[in-house]
Amino acid sequence: MAKADAWGAPGGTAFERREARSDGLAGNARLIAEPAYRRLLAAEPLLRRSIPALIIIFLVVIAALRFLSLMNERDDVERDAKAILSLAAGQLASSISVAANLGSTPGATQDLLEGISRQGAMGRSHVLAVTDSAFKIVAVTPQSTGWEGRSLDAIAQGGQPLFMFGDRAGVMEVRIGGLDWYAAVSLTNGRNGAAAALVPQDAVFDTWRKTVSLNVTLFVLTAGVLIVILYAYFGQAARALAADRIYLEAHQRIDMALVRGRCGLWDWDMVRGKMYWSRSMYDMLGYEPCDAMLSFGEVDEIIHPEDGDLFQLANRIVAREIDHIDQVFRMRHADGQWV
C-alpha cells in the first residue's frame, strides 16, 4: 500500500504530464512542426478557395506569354521575308544592268530570272519579274502567273511608291487578285527598266499559322486537363467533407453512448505497443482527453499493482495461451482514488 500511495502523489502519472505533449509530437519535433501545421490548418480553407483563381491566373499567364512569343515570331518571319525580297530585287536589277550592257537577249533575261529564283531562300510562291521603262512585264518566273505582257503597276495595286522610288520605298504590302502580297521593286541604272520580287502573305505565314494552330491545340488540351483535375479535386474534397461529417457524427454518437453507459472503449495495438482510448474512458478517470495513442507504460502505470500486469497479459496473448481478455482491475483516478 505504501507503493500505491507513492503512485498517488500529485503530478506523478504520465497522464498528468501529457499536457506538455502534442498529439504524436514531442520535444524539438513539436517546436518545429506544430506551428507550421497549425498555420496550414488555418490556411486550408483559403487555399482551397484560391485553387480555381490560381489555375485561371496560370492559364492566363501561359496564354499571354505564348501570344507574345508567337507575335515576336511573326515579326521575325515578316522581317526575313521582306529582307529576302529586297535582296532578290536588288540582285536581279544589278544582274539585268550588267546583262543589258553586254547586249543580252530576252531569252537570256528569262534564264537569269530562273537562275536567281533557284538561289537563296526563294520558294515556289515567290514571283520575280523584269519590266521595261513603262513597267510592262517582259519576263516573269514562274511563267504560270500569266503576267507577261501586262503592266506591273496595274497588277500590284497600292504600290505606287515602289514604282516612283524603287529601293528607297522598301518592301510594301500590295493587293494582287484580291490577296495581300509583299512586293519589292528595284530600278535599273538609267531607269530603263525595273526588277520586282513578290510573294503572297499567305505563303509567308503558312508555317507560322501551323505553329499557332499547334499551340492553340496544346493550350486547349492543357486547360481541359486542368479543368478536369479541378473538377475531380472539388468532387473529392466534397466527398471527403461528407465522409468527415458522417465519421464525426458516428463518433459523437458512440462517445455519447459510451459516456451514458459508463463504458470505455480500448483499441489495443499489441504489435506497436500502443492503445487508443475513447473520450469516455478519460472522463471516467478524470484525465484530459487526448487523440494520440497511449503507450504501454502509460496505461500500466495507473493500474493497481495488485490487479495484474499488462506486459504479462500481452505475452500470454502473443503466446496464444488465451484468446480473449476478461480482466477486472483498479485504475488510478486523476484525483488519486482507485476506480
Rank of each mutant, 00 (worst) to 15 (best):
A2H: 08
A4C: 04
D5E: 10
D5N: 07
A6E: 14
G8W: 00
G11L: 00
A14D: 04
F15W: 10
R17A: 05
R18N: 02
S22N: 12
G24Y: 06
N28E: 15
A33F: 13
R39H: 13
A42K: 13
P45V: 03
L47Y: 06
R49E: 12
R49W: 14
S50P: 07
I56A: 15
F58W: 09
L59Q: 09
S69W: 11
E73T: 11
V77S: 06
V77A: 13
E78R: 13
A81Q: 01
A81L: 02
K82P: 00
K82V: 01
I84H: 01
L85W: 02
L87S: 05
A88H: 05
A89S: 00
G90C: 08
A93E: 05
I96H: 09
V98P: 07
V98I: 14
A100T: 05
N101M: 08
N101G: 15
L102Y: 14
S104R: 08
S104K: 12
T105G: 06
A108K: 06
A108H: 10
D111I: 11
L112C: 00
L113E: 03
G115I: 08
G120S: 09
M122H: 14
M122D: 02
G123F: 02
T131K: 03
D132W: 10
S133G: 12
K136I: 12
A139N: 05
A139D: 10
P142V: 06
S144F: 00
G146L: 01
S151K: 00
L152A: 15
I155D: 01
Q157K: 11
Q157L: 09
G158N: 07
G158Y: 02
G159N: 01
P161Y: 04
F165H: 12
R168A: 11
V174R: 02
G178F: 03
G178S: 03
L179M: 15
D180K: 13
Y182Q: 02
Y182I: 04
Y182C: 03
A183W: 00
S186K: 06
S186Q: 01
T188K: 01
N189E: 15
G193P: 08
A195V: 00
A195M: 07
A196F: 05
A197T: 01
P200L: 05
Q201R: 13
V204D: 05
F205R: 06
T207K: 12
K210G: 10
T211Y: 11
T211L: 12
V212I: 11
N215A: 15
V216P: 02
V220G: 07
T222C: 05
T222Y: 15
G224C: 05
V225D: 04
L230A: 07
Y233S: 11
F234D: 03
A243S: 14
D244W: 14
E249C: 04
E249I: 08
A250H: 11
R253T: 10
A257R: 02
R262I: 01
R262T: 11
C263V: 10
D269E: 13
D269P: 01
D269H: 12
R272P: 03
M275V: 13
W277S: 00
R279W: 10
M281S: 08
Y282D: 13
D283C: 12
G286P: 09
P289K: 07
D291M: 15
A292L: 10
M293F: 15
S295K: 07
S295I: 09
F296I: 05
P305Q: 03
F311E: 15
L313V: 05
L313F: 07
N315Q: 13
N315S: 12
I317S: 06
D326M: 10
Q327T: 13
R330W: 04
M331G: 14
A334H: 12
A334C: 04
Q337V: 10
